[in-house]
């Protein structure tokens, strides 16, 4: 073992820097791979394939430069301080999500006992930023968009939590690291070398989780808060330049984090069957997790590029009449099996 004797303050700084760099990195990776490349292929778009020569590698960098160059416009009627603060609040929520996601046996900022509970709680913090943005913009579209976001959050936080309950029951723990170990130690009919990923038993929960995460991320088909053809850009209508970039990064960063949580909950997280502990597990962990994250993110974005958008009332109906009952049934079934087996 090496270098674990650092003082607490040094460790904290290192962890903060790593998480702070993961957010833009994750956002950039998802933005590049899915938003620019996959979408461009799916939609026969030439544009994102051109800049920079090889496969349009420069597109995202160019976009970033463009955002930073843009004039920082704050509407005259806006509540300036709240307006400026809102993107940061949204970004903080994303930041806090990464704290509990384990990428290896020791690669976790803080392995909380209530890890998943904490993650779901902080993921809904972002909506406060969205509400702030909508209110401070002094724009009716923004206000409508942020109120829709709030309504959507209430409707979809519930299935998100209920979907996770099944996993928690099966794993006997709320700690994300514990959930990884529970899957690693499990066995499918006695075959134990790949463990027992909960996707096999919790496939219904995974579906609900994915749908609710999609809503949480305000991605199509649940993108009413930013519905472009209705509300221009929803709560982001008045934002431009790097403030808009913050929202953009928060959205994709959260997509990355939620994919990582889904990978941890249902696909065994960083676990690979070869190295349980040790330095190699810490090196391979992030790679394995990254692959799983990309697979889940692919699903999320595939849905995003394919479906039209629900109407607000249909969205609520979908959450309350379909997702919540089905996840309750899932919990019950899981509990029954837990007791019986």
């Amino acid at each position: 073992m090496f270098a674990l004797e650092l003082p607490y303050w040094q460790l904290t700084i290192i962890k903060t820097v790593i998480v702070l760099s993961i957010i833009p990195a994750g956002a950039v990776i998802l933005g590049y791979v899915f938003l620019l490349k996959m979408m461009a292929h799916m939609q026969s778009r030439m544009g994102p394939m051109e800049p920079g020569g090889f496969h349009g590698w420069f597109q995202l960098i160019g976009d970033g430069i463009k955002f930073i160059q843009k004039e920082d416009i704050i509407p005259a009627q806006a509540d300036r301080r709240v307006f400026a603060l809102a993107p940061l609040v949204v970004l903080i929520s994303t930041f806090l999500l990464y704290v509990v996601v384990p990428a290896g046996p020791r690669l976790v900022v803080q392995d909380l006992d209530v890890g998943i509970f904490y993650a779901l709680a902080v993921s809904s913090l972002g909506v406060i930023g969205v509400l702030m943005a909508g209110w401070a913009s002094a724009n009716k579209y923004a206000l409508l968009g942020s109120l829709r976001a709030a309504g959507q959050l209430i409707a979809y936080e519930l299935p998100l939590v209920l979907a996770v309950v099944g996993v928690v029951i099966q794993a006997n723990t709320m700690s994300l690291q514990g959930i990884v170990h529970a899957q690693a130690d499990g066995a499918i009919f006695g075959i134990s070398w790949i463990g027992n990923p909960f996707i096999l038993t919790q496939i219904v929960g995974f579906g609900v989780f994915l749908a609710a995460a999609q809503a949480e991320l305000t991605q199509t088909p649940f993108d009413m808060p930013v519905a472009e053809s209705e509300l221009v850009a929803g709560f982001m209508t008045e934002y431009s330049g790097f403030r808009f970039l913050f929202f953009f990064m928060a959205e994709f960063g959260t997509a990355f984090a939620l994919s990582a949580i889904a990978a941890t909950l249902y696909f065994g997280g960083w676990y690979q069957p070869f190295f349980e502990t040790g330095i190699l597990a810490d090196i391979l962990g992030p790679v394995v997790l990254g692959i799983k994250v990309m697979l889940i993110a692919f699903l999320i974005f595939w849905i995003r590029f394919t479906f039209p958008r629900f109407r607000e009332d249909q969205l609520q109906a979908f959450a309350w009449k379909f997702l919540i009952p089905i996840s309750l049934v899932n919990i019950m079934a899981t509990a029954v099996f837990k007791v019986v087996l």
């Binding site: 939609q43 026969s44 778009r45 199509t220 088909p221 039209p308 958008r309």
Partner: peptide
Amino acid sequence: GVQLGAITPVFF
């Protein structure tokens, strides 16, 4: 499609 939120059809 794009008015209803599905962005792909318009590019097709």
